[in-house]
Amino acid sequence: MRRKKDGSIYLDLLLQDKSGIIRARLWDNVESLSKKFDIGNPVAIKGATYKYGENTFIKIKNINRASIEKYAKYGFSSSDLIPSSRKNAKQLWMHLGKEIDLISKVHLRQLVKKILADHKQKFQVYPASISYQYNYQSGLIEQTVSLIKISKILGKHYKVDTDLLLTGACLHQIGKLYSINMGFSMPKSNERRLVGNAILSRDIVNNYIKKVKRFPDEDKLKLEHLILSYQGRKEWQSPVEPQTIEAVLLHSINYMDSHVNVMSKK
C-alpha cells in the first residue's frame, strides 16, 4: 500500500502465474477492494495493461479472491498459476518406487514405503521449497529422485551405509508436506515457522518408526541425526551439524543439488 502525491492511498501489487510476473496498480476503491484478498491468494482481476517507461503494468478496475468453485466455469485452474516441473510426476513416482525396492534393510524399506504411500498424492505435487530450489509443482519428488541418484553414486564410492543415506534422502523433507500451505504463493504455515522443517520431518518419521516391528535403535538414532542435520550449519537453521559420514554426504548432496537447480533456472 502506497500513497499518491495528494496523500490518498493506492495498491502496488505483484501478480504471478506460470508464465511470469507483472506489476499491477489499484488506484480507486482501495479500501473496499483490498479487503477482498490477502497476500498469496489467487485473484481474479478486471483491468487493462498500460506502459510506464519501459515496464508494463495492469491498471486494476476490480479484484476478487479466486476459487475453483466460483471461477472454474471461466476456465480457472490452479495449474495455470503455479509453475510446474518439466518432468512427469507419475514417471518420477514410478522411478522412486523402484529405487526404494532396492533398499536392502527391510526395516528401512518398510519405513520409506509406508510414509510415501500415505503421502502419495501430496508428495507428487508439492514443491521442495517456497522460493529457492525446486520451487514449483512436483519439485519435491523431482529433487528426491535427483538426490537418490547422487546418493547411490557417492554411497558406493565412500563405502557408507547406502541404505541409510537413501532413506534420509527420501524422508528428510517430508515435513514440508505439512509446513507449506499449497496456496498460490505457497506461504509458510505456523508449523514451519514455529518448529522448523527438520524437526517436523524428524517427528513424522519417528511416529512411523513406532509402527515398524523391531526397528533397530541404532538406525533410528542415525536416521534422526541425518534429518536434523541436513541443513548443515546452525546459522542456516540446522538444529545440529553433521557428525556422521552419511550426514555429511546428505547435507553436501542436498546443498549441491539445490544450487545447481537454482542456477539452471537463470
Rank of each mutant, 00 (worst) to 15 (best):
Y52W: 12
F215T: 02
S189H: 04
D217A: 13
I60P: 00
I227N: 00
D161E: 11
D219T: 03
G168K: 01
A169N: 01
L26E: 02
V43N: 01
K59L: 15
L228A: 03
I100N: 02
K51Y: 07
H95Y: 10
K156M: 06
A48D: 14
L96V: 12
D17S: 10
N64Q: 15
H172A: 06
L14I: 13
S185D: 07
G20E: 02
M263D: 10
Q124A: 12
Y10K: 08
P216V: 07
L165T: 06
V205P: 06
S78D: 08
K5P: 02
R214Y: 15
I204H: 01
K222A: 13
V112H: 05
Y230G: 00
Q121L: 10
D219Q: 05
T162V: 15
S151C: 13
L111K: 02
V30M: 02
L194R: 07
A72W: 04
L102Y: 05
K222L: 15
Q110F: 07
N55F: 04
V112I: 12
S264H: 03
N190C: 08
S129Y: 10
G175F: 08
Y126M: 07
S189I: 02
N62S: 14
L13W: 02
K210T: 07
N197F: 09
E235D: 13
Q243K: 14
K114C: 03
A128L: 04
F184N: 03
S79F: 07
L26V: 05
I63L: 02
K114D: 10
M256Q: 10
R192Y: 10
L171C: 07
I115E: 06
S138D: 04
R192C: 05
K73R: 08
R193M: 14
I63N: 00
K222V: 00
A128Y: 00
D6A: 12
A128M: 04
S34P: 04
N88W: 01
N181V: 08
L223Q: 02
S85K: 09
I39R: 11
E218C: 02
C170S: 11
K222N: 13
L177K: 10
N41A: 05
N41E: 08
Y71G: 05
Q133S: 09
K120M: 11
S84R: 12
L102A: 13
L221R: 12
K61R: 12
K59V: 13
K211M: 05
A66E: 00
L250T: 02
A66P: 01
K90W: 08
R202N: 14
R233L: 15
K213L: 09
K90E: 15
G7N: 01
S238G: 04
V195N: 08
L13H: 05
T144L: 03
K234R: 11
S189D: 08
A66W: 01
R86N: 14
E224G: 14
L171V: 04
R23S: 11
F184W: 00
L108R: 09
R193L: 15
I199V: 11
Q16L: 07
K90P: 03
W236E: 15
L171S: 06
M256L: 12
A198S: 09
K98F: 08
I153W: 04
L250A: 03
V125R: 11
N261F: 04
D12P: 00
Y255F: 15
L15H: 12
L116K: 01
K213E: 13
H225Y: 03
T49K: 10
S85M: 09
S201R: 03
P239R: 06
G139H: 08
I245Q: 13
L154R: 08
I60Q: 01
H259F: 12
N41S: 09
L226N: 00
